[in-house]
Design a protein around this nucleic acid. Structure first.
Lengths: 276, 276
DNA sequence: AGTATCGTTCCATTATTTGGAACTTGATTT
DNA sequence: AAATCAAGTTCCAAATAATGGAACGATACT
């Protein structure tokens, strides 16, 4: 097995392997599997690499890749290596710029950043992952895309656990059934059982901590965001290094984070409210 | 000719209509037309809106949209409006983070930013558009994605004209034949003729200016970037407000910009060189 | 209640995808 | 230089998925 894909395997697992989820999207689904393969790889893949990973007949695979390249979703360099295409950037730039949820939340994220001086994130639950929609950092060296658009596990991030705490018990169990619990640090929940216990607590309290569960030395407080019809579930969080963010300090930020979350929800209700 | 492509044609106009480029990508091509429609719209579209724009039979369109939604490329909100899906962000984040060209160029962009104090861009030519791959800004309020991933016209941006100056005459004419010249400002080239004249000049000099041609009050200097096999054509630029960047000042920055471009090319050669 | 309007489902027809095999191309070995 | 091997590409009858007209629900409007 190709060594550099170990990473891709993990990500795929996190997306649900248990569910034996047959794609019902015909041709598109098959092509998306390929896009996933290429975008998850650590380096551009050669035809043969993809062949062994995708397990398709050569003729078929060749045409599929050609179509993806022709549409700009993949790029084929002079050495026959396939890399993600720049058209993806173009799509993403537009979908980000016009995203309603993000636009409504943005001013409140900035306020929260100013109030605390630390990094603020906005994330939503999609499948079993949290996708970060926005990030507001205090100091200069923000490398854009550094976090935005990234998919992170829901079971070991503040925003993730906050989002999960909003789910009805049944959906929660269903969702967790598909999750592969990777232990990123000593504090990462290793099983659904302990996670469920914490999530019940979070549901009562209305806020979640990440006690260095995803990355050693990084802590956060998060508050959940929801809509009545559960169209969006997500959260806001304040994140920072453990040496600066003691658990006591994080506790003091519970109220500001919740207030920001509340304002974002109010913004969504005003924007979408009349109809629901 | 199929009527439902009228809108897609418009979109293509900016990108090239003259080429009568029938999509050869079967099912995927049809779905990408829909993705284009939705991501280019100013607001989420309802089923009927897309129906009238795409002009497909209802049954067909419905299934196509369902597939896109199921794959996360589109999202359908509670009011039946289709918006770009967050999976696009996930794809883009990865393709950006691992893009070789960008990774090689990054340190040189930062150097250039420090040397001048103004905003630095890295862009590549894709089709008739420049796609910005990176941006390094001096002062704080960088809204990420503000420019990265955006597709801009090639005929009125510094990076665009620099990239065009590298093309052999024939390809250049072909490419410009497909461009729809929109006059953004009084200084925008209104026809291929005047543009061609300037591009010849740029090819001789090895650098390009943007004299408020895309946006009033914004100027830039750009230098071209190429590889022997023409796999990548693009440019680096320094951009800023006209009141601060006199043409004299821009002229002083020609050398630094060219030097940065040269270093990036060298980086690419080292990385890819042995093979070509 | 009556009637548009909007969205969804069905299914025989049609077009696209499939995949095995044959064929290039280019590098490596004898 | 010829032979061998691996990597990629093209072909085409068979299998599969997409198509689109029409019938069917679901809301909103009168």
């Amino acid at each position: 097995m190709l060594p550099f894909l170990s990473r891709a395997d993990e990500t795929m697992d996190a997306n649900g392997e248990g569910m034996a989820q047959a794609r019902e999207t015909g041709t598109l689904g098959k092509l998306m599997v390929l896009l996933d393969l290429v975008t998850h790889a650590d380096a551009p893949l050669r035809f043969t690499d993809i062949l062994s990973l995708a397990g398709q007949p050569r003729g078929t695979l060749h045409r599929q890749l050609s179509h993806l390249v022709e549409e700009g979703l993949l790029e084929l360099d002079g050495d026959g290596r396939y890399a993600p295409g720049l058209r993806l950037l173009d799509f993403a730039a537009r979908s980000w710029a016009r995203n309603e949820f993000r636009l409504i939340a943005e001013p409140h994220l900035v306020d929260l950043q100013h109030a605390t001086g630390e990094t603020v994130h906005l994330g939503v639950l999609r499948g079993q992952s949290i996708i970060y929609l926005d990030k507001v950092e205090g100091r200069q060296p923000v490398r854009m895309y550094s976090q935005i658009g990234n998919a992170s596990p829901c079971y070991c991030t503040g925003v993730g656990k906050a989002a999960l705490s909003l789910l009805p018990a049944e959906s929660l169990v269903d969702l967790l059934a598909g999750v592969n619990f990777t232990r990123f640090t000593a504090a990462t929940h290793a099983s659904p059982a302990s996670l469920l216990a914490e999530i019940r607590e979070i549901a009562d309290q209305g806020y979640a901590f990440d006690r260095e569960e995803h990355e050693a030395g990084i802590r956060c407080v998060a508050a959940p965001i929801w809509s009545e019809d559960r169209t969006f579930l997500g959260g806001v969080s304040i994140t920072g290094p453990a040496y600066r963010l003691s658990m006591e300090l994080l506790a003091q930020w519970v109220v500001p984070v919740q207030r920001a979350a509340g304002r974002i929800m109010e913004g969504m209700r005003i924007r979408l409210g009349p109809r629901r």
